[in-house]
Design a binder for these strands. Structure first.
Length: 889
RNA sequence: GCGAAAGUGGCGAAAUUGGUAGACGCACAGGCUUCAGGUGCCUGCGACCGCAAGGUUGUGGGGGUUCGAGUCCCCCCUUUCGCACCA
């Protein structure tokens, strides 16, 4: 700073430096300073008020806030501030989902330790969240990479081990033979390791699992008790859990004492079974392969190939006869047992009865292997049809493909003529009596594999001892702390490379032992953070405060978490409930899934056809008089660019817009306002800087209205009794808006229409130029209401404008949300539409209490209507009071 | 293939219970203010016909229910998302 005095007589010294209009930077800094000084959003339990727990999914600290975060946390903030204005004790916490692979990638690239990188990102992103003005209780902040946090996760895990809810088994992973490491699915590109380029192999290694399948039925049933969750999310979870009912049935294997169990959802097709298919990993297949080198080669071949679903999809159905024969439990026929590529060991029993006539996969294998195809089910219309009609279907089933619908049994001996249910009941009863089978429910949901062969995660608290096996780390020795001061030499996990960290003593026998070097799936940390937020500083996972705050009243996050996170979140809550940690069956009563943030893409192609993507911020667009795009050009050199279509904001298309730059340019309130206005929360939101400017314009106009109003004579108290008709109308519009905005915030979560209603109201207010005492009083009432109604969305501007309207500085969240005045909502006249034969022909003004007869007479007398009715006979008149009169001629 | 959601002006969208389609905003056009404008204000803006008044038509396509359909029912098309050999 310089000591030099300012030159005298400088024009930089205006007499009264009244700031010109709306200055978002200053307004926002002042509001945030005030909130921070009074600790506005720090909350404690308060039994005298209803609580409201508003939770947004915690961010991964990737480095900088992106528009998806802004949208998510603005929705949460709007709901939080609105609920607090209605008198609730609102908690809105925030934390960091801090473990994960990107930190390892960054560590390799930048040669920094993942912990250091992550913590630096958190510092930066916290400042950015604060810049957005979110009403967060920062005293509850947590980072999942802190030992203070994950110690509780380790403690829960060893208790789950003791309860048998966690167990270890071998499971297939992607193995990179060059980097000597396990790869996540997304690190496998076209069957090759993303860094090494080596062909990825399937490899079985022992891993830890949580028994989520024990809760499959409860997780399914619980969805019905969640009316506040979006239907699409519940449908996806139902499909994921994938409950199916059927019959488990054992076939005798010829010449042995073995039995081969299959699961089927179509026991009605049993008489059409012509062979059996088993998975390549099935014990029977392995045993048969021991004596059959060709079969062994086939099994080895099946094992090869990617784990990815996309690869499985395109695979042809392959099979190979094991030489074994199974005895059909009803006909006694000997059926060949095949190993089939499409049978999954992990579902059902790993074996199926093959009914080529009524299952497309079985049909394809039967065709390839020339196995018999039998028709045993016919549709309704063929139930009593003559034989030649059935013959047609039989030919179709033989030549073209399976008939997979349910129907009526034929060629099934004593079961002929039964429908699906009758056949199921008859067969189930029979096989239950014979001890050969039983009704069975299967789920496609698998147990949750929680092991990751990565460094940057929560260490799995287990010690491997040559004598005692896998031994849980005793609770008093927790946490097992992940060393953070590590160097990343290659891809391999530093704790796997470090013999000193691994080396320890067995807690059971005291002998030399090694620590587990796998870490938990990061979904583990995000499955219980909502509970920890309620009890900051608790020495256990939670304390008594948890019962005050749970369940979460409103959860907000991306639809991409519809299945995995939200299912684990519900599962973990049930685990914690059964351990006595939390109460209630579900963690969150209401869920809002917000849509993506998308933007236009622009590109240029070079000679080789390579696309250079240009950020929308660097493109100028010319339009014709209809508003259609004529040409787009790069601002840097004026060169023409192509429009590439609207895509999710992403680095690869260079169409991301940095929230920081938008806040710097327009202020946080404008950015918040645009992200709430441009689309309903569940839909995708198209970023448009022109749209952002429109929002800035609205805030400037509101500011200008308040300034103009306050520059005039002081507003007296409103004298309701002496309002003119025009004033009554404006006041009614005001109170209708109050009613609508409250409903839009609280019930509908329809923030875009709330803003539209406020804009409309401001348009009405600015058009009225009423300087009478009641006119000024009404404008004061309206402007005060607009400022409060807008507060959840634009809290900084509202904070400043409230003071400009003559109030002392205060926390607006503690000012009650405006309520509509019932008297102001009353109308004495309404406009009704008049239709002739359903077509709008005119409108009439009528008293609210006008009789049907009076309305009918007025409608018939309406000039346009009267002209149209000349020479016609009125057949019927429908009168809907307050809405419409329809004249039928 | 299976499941779900959606399709409305040049664009983002609104229409909450079957009752005046297109609120609100963007873009565009015309005008005013300004030394100037990436400012502010006013006006217009679904399409077609018309100077206008007004008329006709219009919510992906086809059918239906109804006095009345963007909304309900049936068939079809398109898009997005999720799952994808689950017996």
């Amino acid at each position: 700073m310089s000591d030099t005095p300012a030159p005298s007589g400088s024009s930089r010294e205006p007499a009264a430096p009244e700031p010109a209009g709306y200055q978002p930077a200053a307004v926002e800094a002042a509001a945030r300073r005030y909130w921070s000084e009074i600790g506005a959003f720090e909350v404690v339990e308060d039994p005298s008020r209803p609580k409201f727990y508003c939770l947004s999914m915690l961010p991964y600290p990737s480095g900088a806030l992106h528009m998806g975060h802004v949208r998510n946390y603005t929705i949460g903030d709007v709901i939080s501030r609105y609920q607090r204005m209605t008198g609730k004790n609102v908690v809105q916490p925030m934390g960091w989902d801090a473990f994960g692979l990107p930190a390892e990638n960054a560590a390799i690239k930048n040669k920094t330790a993942p912990g250091k990188w992550t913590r630096a990102n958190i510092e930066h992103m916290r400042v950015q969240l604060q810049m957005m003005g979110y009403a967060i209780d920062w005293t509850r902040e947590l980072a999942t990479c802190d030992p203070d946090y994950y110690v509780h996760e380790q403690r829960v895990f060893v208790r789950l081990l003791a309860k048998g809810m966690a167990y270890r088994k071998s499971s297939v992973v992607n193995w990179d033979p060059v980097d000597q490491t396990v790869l996540a699915n997304e690190q496998v590109v076209d069957g090759r390791g993303w860094r090494s380029g080596a062909l990825v192999e399937k490899r079985e290694i022992p891993q830890w699992f949580l028994k989520i399948t024990d809760y499959a039925q409860e997780l399914l049933d619980g969805l019905d008790a969640l009316p506040g969750w979006p239907e699409p999310v519940k449908t996806m979870q139902r499909n994921w859990i994938g409950r199916s009912e059927g019959l488990e049935l054992a076939f005798d294997v010829e010449g042995t004492d073995d039995r081969l169990s299959v699961f089927t959802t179509r026991p009605d097709t049993l008489m059409g079974a012509t062979f059996l298919s088993i998975a390549g990993e099935h014990p029977l297949a392995l045993r048969a392969a021991a004596a059959d080198p060709d079969l062994a080669a086939f099994l080895a071949d099946l094992k090869r190939g990617g784990v990815s679903e996309a690869e499985l999809e395109t695979q042809v159905k392959r099979g190979r006869d094991t030489g074994l024969r199974a005895i059909h439990p009803i006909t006694g026929e000997a059926l060949p047992i095949y190993v089939a590529s499409f049978v999954l060991m992990s579902y059902g029993t790993g074996a199926v009865m093959a009914v080529p006539g009524h299952d497309q996969r079985d049909w394809e294998l039967a065709k390839a292997k020339d196995l018999p195809i039998r028709l045993v089910i016919v549709p309704d219309e063929l139930r009593h049809a003559p034989p030649d009609a059935v013959e047609k279907l039989r030919r179709r089933v033989t030549e073209e493909g399976a008939f997979t619908e349910r129907g009526w049994l034929v060629s099934s001996g004593q079961y002929d003529g039964m429908d699906f249910q009758q056949a199921l009941d008859a067969l189930a009863t029979r096989f239950e009596a014979e001890g050969r089978g039983a009704r069975r429910v299967n789920y496609r949901l698998r147990d949750w594999g929680v092991s990751r062969q990565r460094y940057w995660g929560c260490p799995i608290p287990v010690i491997h001892c040559a004598a005692c096996g896998a031994v849980p780390v005793p609770e008093d020795q927790l946490p097992v702390v992940l060393p953070e001061d590590v160097a990343f030499l290659g891809v391999q996990s530093p704790i796997k490379a470090d013999p000193d960290w691994r080396r320890t003593l067995c807690p059971r026998c005291g002998g030399p032992a090694e620590r587990e070097t796998d870490t938990f799936d990061t979904f583990m940390e995000s499955s219980w953070y909502y509970a920890r937020y309620t009890s900051p500083g608790a020495s256990d996972m939670v304390d008594a405060r948890v019962d005050h705050w749970l369940p979460v009243d409103q959860y907000i996050g991306g639809i991409e978490h519809a299945i995995l996170h939200l299912l684990y979140f519900r599962f973990y809550h049930k685990l914690l409930r059964d351990m006595g940690v939390v109460k209630g069956d579900e963690p969150a009563t209401n869920l809002l899934t917000q849509g993506m943030v998308v933007a236009e893409t622009f590109y240029r192609e070079d000679a080789s056809g390579e696309r250079e993507w240009i950020n929308p911020a660097d493109v100028d667009i010319e339009r014709d008089e209809r508003g259609r795009i004529l040409r787009a050009s790069a601002r840097s050199d004026g060169g023409r660019v192509s429009v590439g279509g609207i895509e999710k904001m992403a680095k690869s298309k260079n169409n991301g817009v940095d929230p920081q730059s938008m806040v710097d340019k327009y202020g946080a309130d404008t950015v918040r306002l645009f992200s709430m206005f441009a689309a309903p929360p569940e839909q995708s939101l198209e970023w448009s800087e022109a749209g952002v400017e429109g929002m800035a314009r609205f805030l400037r106009r509101l500011w200008a209205q308040v300034e103009r109003h306050m520059a005039g004579a002081a507003a007296p108290a409103l004298d309701v009794a002496s309002l003119t008709a025009g004033q009554k109308t404006l006041r009614r519009q005001l109170h209708e808006t109050i009613q609508k905005v409250g409903d839009d915030y609280g019930r509908r979560h329809s923030f875009n229409t709330a803003i539209a209603a406020l804009m409309e109201l401001l348009n009405h207010v600015s058009k009225s130029d009423d300087a009478s005492p009641n006119g000024r009083a009404l404008r004061q009432e309206a402007l005060e209401a607009i400022v409060l109604l807008l507060n959840p969305i634009t809290p900084h501007a509202s904070h400043a404008l409230r003071q400009r309207l003559g109030h002392a500085e205060t926390l607006l969240e503690d000012v009650p949300f405006p309520r509509p005045d019932a008297a102001a909502l009353e109308r004495d006249a309404v406009t009704l539409a008049v239709q002739v034969n359903g077509k709008l022909r005119g409108t009439i003004e009528a008293a609210v209490d006008a009789s049907r007869e009076a309305l009918e007479a007025m409608a018939l007398a309406e000039p346009h209507v009267a002209v149209l009715l000349q020479g016609k006979t009125v057949r019927k008149v429908i009168v809907v009071p307050g809405k419409i009169v329809n004249i039928v001629v």
